[in-house]
Design a protein around this nucleic acid. Sequence first.
DNA 1: TAACAAAACGACACTAATGTCGTTTTGGTT
DNA 2: AACCAAAACGACATTAGTGTCGTTTTGTTA
Lengths: 208, 208
Amino acid sequence: MSPKVSQEHMEQRRADILKAAQEVFIEHGYERATMKHIMDAANISRGGLYQYFSSKEAVFETILEESLAMELDETLDMVKENATSYWDMLMKIIFGEDGEPDDDMDPLSPAKLEFFIIGRNDDHRREYGKVRYNNGLKIYATIIEHGQKSGEFSPRFDHQIIARSIISFIDGLAVEHAMLSKEDLKIKEQSMLFVEYLKLALGISGRD
Amino acid sequence: MSPKVSQEHMEQRRADILKAAQEVFIEHGYERATMKHIMDAANISRGGLYQYFSSKEAVFETILEESLAMELDETLDMVKENATSYWDMLMKIIFGEDGEPDDDMDPLSPAKLEFFIIGRNDDHRREYGKVRYNNGLKIYATIIEHGQKSGEFSPRFDHQIIARSIISFIDGLAVEHAMLSKEDLKIKEQSMLFVEYLKLALGISGRD
DNA sequence: TAACAAAACGACACTAATGTCGTTTTGGTT
DNA sequence: AACCAAAACGACATTAGTGTCGTTTTGTTA
């Protein structure tokens, strides 16, 4: 027997394809990206690409999985190393490491929106979107619930609804990020106002 | 000379096509809807349809124009007949006639999201989206600005940013409305929480 | 260095949509 | 009733993408 090409080589190639595909999805969005774009970007032939991924959807879902896994890791790290307060935890999960709003957004988010909005009538995609939504919901809802139980947050509003409003806020920004050019956006200012909203909802007195 | 078919007949046909097309876009969304779907729904042939509209994009933009004109009319009516308070005005514009949050949303909004998000790299579509965004922004921003000047609202936050957060909130809900099934949605509750947010931002003391 | 499994290739058949154009039908005018 | 402009029709050519499959290349093993 002669195991032709090493395992690592294939994994490397696969990773290269995914990286190239991610660039393609960022540039063209999901719907207008084609397998041809990915082939060109990854310097691989049609047949070669199909040996790794059976469709554009498969490529994209793999990217989604991997980025979700990364985010989850980061989130867990944050939660561990920051046993300070639930509020800080929340801010870090929403705005990233420094817990402060800025003008950056996930460059892949427009493609993600497309993927789920257009696929809303596919059973598979719908279910998949629902699972992702519920995962996100659970992360926020759990932190808020704990914060409320500990007395750090006011129990005035239902933690589930607040969690939903956080996700919905991020989605709303993602829509604007997709549609408007950088000059027309005010991501940071809107985020800062949202933080004020959240302080109200959670009964956080104005600190910082 | 014999002016073959009456003007009214053509206008009627055109209106019928648009109505049928709207149903198609609601059912399939923008991207997956085809001219064939519209032909079937409107009971018209390929050639016939193309005599009225040169492309799917043209059909959809016509629907957008007409629904925007309607909304604008309604908004103006509300503003006129409700010289009561800027707050009431705002609630009516956001939530419709009764000014109260409910679980309904524009059934066409998922298709609209698709249209603008996918077309974000087309110059024409991008420009068109920007104009629509700015129109919406202006309506909210103007009311808030007036309310602030009149003393009804607190001037604490910039009226533009609050206006943006309203649009972004609606967009965020639209995304969830597109992705989740009715049972999984909490449109009304989220809207009620958003109203609380707005009361904070505008310094409205808890009434109603 | 010969053998060969499988990785990579790219031509091809297929599909689903678009927009056009020559023909047929329609219904108001004379 | 005959006329005829234009509304409606539907077959067709075209385009852009997908996924397959037989062939070629590659590089590790023996």
